[in-house]
């Protein structure tokens, strides 16, 4: 499975929403994500993709839309 699909799967799981139709929407502004969700995302990335992202690497403005998250994960993979 490629990164995009995996990340979207995680995000759909976490937010309880299908985010694939709104790839540039701000997940924090819409209330779909919060600090708790961010940590869950980081842990899932670690578990599913083996990507280690320390909490202090998580600059919210760089992780606030599905597209940005996918780009970020691809850059770290």
């Amino acid at each position: 499975m490629d990164i995009k699909e995996t990340v979207l799967g995680i995000l759909n799981d976490l937010t309880g929403n299908d985010v694939s139709g709104a790839m540039d929407d701000n997940l924090f502004d819409s209330g779909l994500m919060d600090s708790m969700g961010s940590v869950q995302l980081l842990l899932q990335l670690q578990g599913d993709l083996g990507i280690n992202v320390p909490v202090s690497e998580f600059e919210r403005s760089e992780w606030d839309t599905p597209n940005k998250i996918i780009a970020k994960v691809e850059s770290l993979a």
């Binding site: 600090s35 708790m36 961010s38 940590v39 980081l42 842990l43 909490v55 202090s56 998580f58």
Partner: peptide
């Protein structure tokens, strides 16, 4: 507090 206590503890 969010970044250095809350998120770290949750993690």
């Amino acid at each position: 507090f969010r970044d250095f206590i809350y998120m770290r503890l949750v993690f």
